[in-house]
Amino acid sequence: MASVKFENITKEYPKGIRALKNINLYIDDSEFIVLVGPSGCGKSTALRIIAGLEDCTEGNLYIGGQPVKNVRPKDRNIAMVFQNYALYPHLTVFDNMAFGMKMRKTAKAEIKERITGAAEMLHIEELLGRKPGELSGGQKQRVALGRAIVREPGVFLLDEPLSNLDAELRAQMRIEIIKLHKKLGTTFIYVTHDQTEAMTMADRIVVMKDGTIQQTGTPKIIYENPANIFTAGFIGSPRMNFIEAAVILYEDSILLKTDSFTLPLDKTAYNKDILKKYSGRKLIAGIRPEDIDCTAGNNGYVIDAVHEITETLGYEDYVHFDVSGEKITARSGRKEKFKEGTSVKISLDLKRMHLFDKESKKNIIY
C-alpha cells in the first residue's frame, strides 16, 4: 500500500505539445481515485508516468513518500491492468498469472499460494488450466486483474479496463472491482472516459481537460457543486442544460433575464451579495434535467415550453423541449405523455440551479 503525489508535473512532447500542465495531486494510501475526462485530456499520460512508462518533463512524482523519478518501472511496486488485457495466448491462465513471479524467481509454493488466493477472490479457479483463446472478455479481464493481484503491489493502475466489455458485463465488473478494492485495501488509480464508472467507483474523482485538473472531489461534490461549466457538462447524463442570461436588479429583486423568460435569482441558493456583483453582466445558468418538473409542479418556477421529442429508456424518459429557441432536456417518469409540438408548462427548481461566469466559465460561488 502506498500514497502517490504529483508535484508540479508537466509532460511535454515534441513540437510543444503539452499532455500535462503543472499537475498537483495527492492520492492517499488505500484510496480509490478515478481520473476522468475526454480523449486527449492527459489521464492516461498521468497513469503512464506513475508506472514509469513515461518520464515527466518537469516536476516530481512520489510513491509511498519516496521520489521515483529515476526508479525503474519494475522497482516501483505498482501493477497495471490494461484495456486490451495483454495476456500471453500460448500460456494457460495459471502460467499467465505466474509469469511475473517466475521472472523474479519466486518460490513455486508461494506462486501457487498467491495464484490460488487470487483465483478464489476473482472466482476463476476453474479457468486456471485454460488458455486466453478459450475465455470470454469478462474472464480475460478477471485474469488480467488476477495477474496484478499476485504481485501484491502498493498501487494498482487500471487504464480503461472495462471499455472492451458489453454494457451488462461492464456493470458487473464495476461491482467486482469495487469489492476487490475493499478486500485488498490497496491504492487504486483508475482511468476512464466513462462518467458512470467514475461516479459509481471512486472515493474521489479527478476531472481532467486539456492536460489540467478541472476539479477534484467526491462524486457527490463533483455532481452537486461543479466548479466550472466543463465539469458541470461532462458529469451527468443527460448533460446539464445551459442558458445564457443577463443579471438585472429590479427594485428589491435580482432577476436573470434570458431572451425568452425571466427568473428570480433571489430564489436560488446563491448569496445576494455575490449576485449583485454581476448586475448588468451575463451569466451562464445551468440546471440538471432531473431538476425540471414536466408537470409544472409547485416546487419550482413555471415557464412555457413546446415539446419536441421524448427518448424512452423504459424506467424513465428524457423529454426535450423548446423554450423560445432554447433547447431544454428534462428527466421524467413514465407517467407523463406528450404529443410532439404540444405547448406545456414546466417548472425549474431554482434552488438547484448553478450559475457560471461567462468569461471564466467558473461557478460564481467559487
Rank of each mutant, 00 (worst) to 15 (best):
G211V: 06
L256Q: 04
E336S: 15
K105T: 07
K5S: 14
V206T: 11
E120F: 07
F321Q: 00
N22T: 09
L165T: 08
D28N: 15
M201Q: 01
H90T: 14
N60L: 07
D349S: 13
F94I: 06
D293Q: 12
R331M: 14
G37N: 08
M103H: 08
K105C: 05
Y250N: 15
N77T: 05
T295W: 01
D322N: 15
D210H: 10
R76F: 10
S39W: 10
K339H: 13
R174S: 07
G146S: 08
A51S: 12
H90P: 07
K182T: 13
T258N: 03
D291S: 14
A296V: 06
P264R: 10
R170C: 09
L265N: 03
S360F: 11
R331T: 09
N22S: 13
V68S: 07
G52F: 05
N298M: 14
E113G: 02
R352F: 04
R130W: 11
N363P: 09
I78C: 10
L47S: 02
A51Y: 06
I328V: 14
A107F: 00
K361C: 11
I178Q: 12
N225R: 15
M101S: 00
G146Q: 04
S44M: 05
T268F: 05
S3I: 06
I328G: 00
D203Y: 04
